[in-house]
Design a protein around this nucleic acid. Structure first.
Lengths: 150, 150
DNA sequence: GGGAAAAAGTGGTTTTTAGTGGTTTTTTTT
DNA sequence: AAAAAAAACCACTAAAAACCACTTTTTCCC
C-alpha cells in the first residue's frame, strides 16, 4: 500500500498542468498505475486531495453511506463527491487540474504537494506557509495523541 | 537499540549538505545501515528530527492512525508526515537537507546536532543558543517528571 | 614532543535525470 | 465544414545526484 511522505514545491503552467515529482510518480505508478482521483478537502483548509484510485474506492462508499439528514454530513458529501475528478497522468507525468478545483483551492503558479500517508494534499504555496505559521492553538488533543512520544 | 547523546557543532555547505560527525555516523551505521528519516519537529521549536529508519517505522503508524477529524491531530500529521524525508548518507557520510526542511528550521551555515536518545535533533546554532537562554517558565510538569530525582 | 599516517571534512566537477514549454494532431462544438 | 479547444507528442533547458580530489585535523608511534 502507498505511503506518501514529504513535501514538494511544484509549479503549475499556464494551461493548468502540473508535473508530479518523479518520486511521487513512482509511488503512484505502483499504487494505481497512475490512475488517481482529485477532489476537494472538506475541512476549513482549502486544499485538494489526491487519492490513488484503490484508496478512493475505499473512501467513496463510506461517504455515500453517511446519514445525510445531518447538515455536516451533507456538506461533506457535496464537497468530496461533488468535486471528485478521476484522471490519469499524461506521458510526461503531469496532471491537468480542472478549473473548478483550481479556484476552490486558490491554486495559482506556485504549489505545494504534501504527502499524508495514503493520500496527498495539494496546496497553494502561499496558503501552506501561512498555515505553517499559524499558532498551534489550544485545540484539544485526542487521548491517542496525548500518549505519543515523538 | 540506538542511544544518541551529546551535541555536535556542524557546518552545512552551500548545497545544503552536512557531514554527520564520525561518532554519530558509527551509531547510525549500526542502528539502520545509514538509512534515516528526517522530518519537522511538531512543537513550537522549529528544529528537525533525525530518526533511524526502524525507529521511524514505530512512530509513523501511530501518527497515521490518529483520528484526523481532530484539528490538533491533523496539524501533527501534516507536520510529521508532510515533512518526512527518507534518505541515506552519501559516500562521504553526508546528508542533503531538502530546501523545505532547511527553511522550516531556519538552517543556515552553522548548525547543532543534539542527541536525544532514540532520535537526534538538528537546530540552527543561533536558535539553539537562544533557546538555552530562554527562561524555563512555570510550565506544568507531568507527574512522571515531578517524581524524578536527578 | 614531533612527525607521519590515517581518517574526517570540504569543495568542486561531471553526468544523468527531471521539469518546462512549445508544437502538432485530434476531437468537439457551433 | 470550419474553428476552437483540448489532448498527446516531442525537444530543450535546468537542476539534482553521484563522483572524485584535495585540505585539514586527529591519532598513534617513534
Amino acid at each position: 500500500m502507498s505511503n506518501f511522505l514529504g513535501s514538494h514545491a511544484i509549479n503549475m503552467d499556464a494551461k493548468g498542468r502540473l508535473a508530479i515529482p518523479a518520486k511521487v510518480r513512482e509511488e503512484l505508478a505502483q499504487a494505481c498505475g497512475g490512475r488517481i482521483v482529485l477532489t476537494a478537502n472538506a475541512d476549513e483548509e482549502r486544499c485538494l486531495l489526491v487519492y490513488p484510485e484503490p484508496e478512493w474506492e475505499i473512501l467513496r462508499p463510506k461517504v455515500e453511506a453517511l446519514p445525510n439528514m445531518n447538515k455536516a454530513a451533507r456538506r461533506l458529501q457535496r464537497l468530496i463527491l461533488g468535486n471528485a475528478a478521476p484522471m490519469e497522468l499524461d506521458g510526461a507525468g503531469r496532471i491537468l487540474v480542472p478549473p473548478t478545483l483550481r479556484s476552490y483551492a486558490h491554486l495559482e503558479k506556485k504549489l505545494m504537494l504534501i504527502g499524508q500517508g495514503k493520500k496527498l494534499e495539494l496546496w497553494s504555496e502561499e496558503r501552506w506557509f501561512a498555515w505553517l505559521d499559524e499558532s498551534s492553538d489550544d485545540d484539544e488533543m485526542p487521548p491517542e495523541m496525548e500518549a505519543l512520544s515523538l
